[in-house]
Simulated scan of single mutants.
Amino acid sequence: MRRVLLCGWVLALSCGCAAGGGDEGRAPGAPTGVTARAGSATSVHVMWNAVPADPPVGAYEVYRGATKVGEVPGSAHMLDVVRLAPSTAHVFTVRARDGDGRLGPPSREVRATTPAAGPADTSAPTRPDTVTGRAAGSRAVQLSWSASSDDREVVSYDVYQGGTRIHSVGGGQTATVVTGLRPGTRYSFTVRARDAADNLSSAGAAVRVTTPPGGDAGRDTAPGDLRVTTHRAPDGAYYLDLSWMAPRVDGVVTEYGIQLDGAAATSLAWGGTPPHGRATYSFYAGREKGATHRVRLRARLPDGSWGAYSAERTVTTGADG
């Protein structure tokens, strides 16, 4: 596997080689999709994507500057950093540690500024109502709820699975897709609203969803509106030009796998901050005019699993001029 950085993408070219033992004993890679958002005047919520590793990641360490401020098990991908100074800019990184104790490199830095401490606020937001949920494939659930109100501002919504908080989304968001679930399993979710003073609402009514059996990742996890055209370079080679919308899942999608004519062609890892909205990518398709290709792609979800494939598109080199 050869990796090349091109215009913000890290391109991994599939060579068809058998996997060897060269990665044995290697530390996990750097976490991607790291985000940080102030949850109150004294706290910041940090989230990141799961790091695929062998042996599996045993824990994640969160740093503020050079200081380690928290650690969570490898099954968790979020941490509330508390007891911070108000009106202060903070810089965070995350590192993965495998089960053998090897510590991987730090993620890219993310920044969050805590707001100023306001007057004493002891009033919690109203609870989220009309919470609904549906299975989005065998490993994902789509949740939505009505907005809460607060005497100042709702800054986030916390999603609980049973009694465990598993996600947090911004106060302007009233829907999310929870991934990393098990097929054929019954789940119970609740949602609570949080204000800038860390006051939590009571939980909305529990919504129970059973994921179907099987390995269907669910169309909600697939990239949307895939478009494929071709162009001819000055040297006579043809390229396939792809554009698509990232799946609307909880977290940041930083990696995609492209399938060409039914076989894996390339794996694309975003080298910086992924674009908001439509993403684009072009790759070499040969020199033959009139060659017809079938193209589709899928995203690596924040929980480390692969989502569903997009709709397949067919394109012919030279058809676009």
Rank of each mutant, 00 (worst) to 15 (best):
S14E: 03
A19L: 15
G25H: 00
P52W: 04
A53S: 14
P55S: 08
E61S: 06
H77L: 03
M78Q: 14
V82N: 06
L84Y: 01
A85Q: 14
R95E: 04
G99K: 11
E109L: 15
V110Q: 07
R111K: 15
A116D: 14
A124K: 09
P128S: 10
D129L: 13
V141H: 08
S144Q: 09
A175N: 03
T176P: 06
V177I: 12
V178W: 00
T179R: 00
L181P: 02
P183D: 05
G184N: 14
T185V: 14
V191R: 00
V191I: 12
D195C: 14
S202G: 15
R208G: 12
D220F: 09
T221P: 08
A222C: 12
P223E: 01
G224Y: 04
D225C: 04
T229C: 09
P234M: 08
Y239C: 08
Y239K: 01
G251F: 04
G251A: 11
E255C: 15
Q259W: 11
A263K: 03
A265I: 00
S267F: 06
S267R: 03
L268Y: 00
T273Q: 01
P275N: 10
A279P: 05
T280I: 07
T280L: 13
G286F: 08
K289N: 11
K289P: 08
G290L: 12
G290I: 11
A291G: 05
L301E: 02
S305P: 05
W306T: 06
A311F: 01
G318A: 07
D320H: 14
